[in-house]
C-alpha cells in the first residue's frame, strides 16, 4: 500500500483544522485576526472579552463551523457506504428515501409547531427508510437492486405527499421552503453536542466494517465464498448510514452533492480500498461543506442557501474527475 495514503489522511486532518481557523476569521461581520486572537485569549483566561466579538466567535461562528464539519463528515461517510453497497457511483445518502421522508415530517412539523420540525423530520425519514428496506427484503437479506427501486418509489411517494401539503398550505409553510433548501444557520452548541455524540457512536460501526465493504465491492457471490456475511453487513451499514443521514437532515435540511462527490474525490486520491477511503471521504465532505458554508454565510447581500454553493462547487469537480477518467 502506498505510504502516501497515510500522509494524505494526516494532511486532510490538518487541512480541516486550518479550514476551521480560516472560517472562524471570515463572516458577514469583519473581525480582524488580532481581535480574534485577543478575544480567544481573554475568553479562556477569565478576563472580560469584548461582548460583540466573543459572542460572534463562540456562540455564532464556532458552533456553526463545528456543525458544518459534523454534517460534512456524516454525508461523506454515508455517501461512501451507499455507493459501495449499491455498487453505484451515483449513490447519494438520500437514496433510500431519507430526504423526501424528512420533507414530509418537516412540512407536518411546520404546520403544528416549528420546534417539532427536527423530531418529525427524523421520524418520517426513518419511516421512509424502513418502508424501502421492508419492500426490498428477500430471503432474509436486503436485495440492493430492489432497494434502489424501492428507495426511488418511496421517495416519489413521500415527495408527492410533501408537495401536496406544501401546495395546500403554502402561506403557513414558508418555513418548509427554507428548510428544503437546507442550511446551517441557527447552529447551536446543543445541536453540535448531540450530533457529535451520534457520530462517535455510529461512525465506528461503519469503520469497523471497512474490510467487508472492500470485499463486497468485488461481488456478492465472491464475498460470500470468502466468508463475508454480506446480507448482515449490507443491512447494518445501510441502516446505520441512513440513521445518521436522517439525523443530519433533521438538523440542517437537505444539503445535496456532498455525499455524492466526496467519495469520488477520495477514490481519486487514495484508491478504491476502504482502508483509507473510510476516513478520507468524510474528511473531504467536512472540508467541502465547511468551505461552502463559509461562502454561503459571508456574502454581503445576506446569506444564500448552502446547497447552491455545494452544487456550484461540487458539480465542476465531479465533471473534472469524469473528464480525467475518460482521458485515461
Amino acid at each position: 500500500m502506498k505510504p502516501t495514503n497515510y500522509l494524505f489522511t494526516i494532511f486532510l486532518v490538518f487541512l480541516t483544522i486550518i479550514n476551521i481557523l480560516v472560517s472562524l476569521s471570515i463572516g458577514p461581520v469583519h473581525i480582524s485576526i488580532t481581535d480574534i486572537v485577543r478575544n480567544i485569549y481573554l475568553y479562556f483566561f477569565g478576563k472580560d472579552p469584548n461582548w460583540t466579538v466573543s459572542t460572534i466567535l463562540f456562540y455564532i461562528r464556532l458552533p456553526r463551523i463545528i456543525l458544518a464539519v459534523i454534517i460534512g463528515t456524516i454525508l461523506g461517510v454515508s455517501g461512501l457506504v451507499t455507493q459501495t453497497i449499491f455498487k453505484n457511483p451515483l449513490g447519494d445518502p438520500y437514496l433510500t428515501g431519507v430526504s423526501s421522508g424528512a420533507a414530509v415530517g418537516a412540512a407536518i412539523g411546520f404546520l403544528t409547531s416549528p420546534f417539532l420540525v427536527p423530531v418529525l423530520a427524523f421520524i418520517f425519514a426513518m419511516i421512509a427508510v424502513s418502508i424501502s428496506f421492508i419492500i426490498s427484503r428477500s430471503n432474509g437479506e436486503v436485495n440492493t437492486e430492489m432497494l434502489i427501486l424501492a428507495g426511488v418509489s418511496v421517495s416519489f411517494l413521500f415527495s408527492a405527499v410533501a408537495s401536496y401539503i406544501i401546495y395546500l398550505k403554502i402561506t403557513n409553510l414558508r418555513g418548509v421552503i427554507f428548510w428544503l433548501l437546507g442550511g446551517l444557520y441557527g447552529a447551536t452548541w446543543t445541536e453540535d453536542y448531540w450530533l457529535f455524540i451520534a457520530l462517535i457512536v455510529i461512525l465506528p460501526v461503519i469503520v469497523y466494517f471497512r474490510k467487508e465493504l472492500d470485499i463486497i465491492l468485488i461481488g456478492d457471490d465472491q464475498a460470500k465464498s470468502l466468508g463475508v456475511n454480506t446480507g448482515r453487513i449490507k443491512t447494518v451499514t445501510l441502516l446505520v448510514s441512513s440513521l445518521i443521514t436522517s439525523l443530519a437532515v433533521s438538523a440542517v435540511g437537505i444539503i445535496g452533492f456532498i455525499g455524492l462527490v466526496s467519495p469520488h474525490i477520495g477514490r481519486k486520491i487514495v484508491g478504491e480500498s476502504h482502508r483509507f477511503l473510510i476516513f478520507v471521504a468524510p474528511l473531504i465532505g467536512a472540508n467541502i461543506l465547511l468551505a461552502s458554508d463559509t461562502i454561503a454565510r459571508s456574502t454581503p447581500q445576506g446569506e444564500i442557501p448552502v446547497g447552491i454553493i455545494t452544487s456550484f462547487v461540487g458539480a465542476p469537480v465531479l465533471i473534472y474527475l469524469l473528464y480525467r477518467r475518460r482521458k485515461l
Partner: peptide, 21 residues
C-alpha cells in the same frame, strides 16, 4: 469464479489478501 470484469481499482495485493478474510 468464472472470470469477471470489475471497474474497481484494487491492487493485486489488496485483492489477493481478501482471501485471508
Amino acid at each position: 469464479p468464472q472470470i469477471f470484469s470489475t471497474p474497481y481499482a484494487f491492487t493485486v495485493k489488496d485483492f489477493v489478501s481478501m482471501g485471508l478474510y
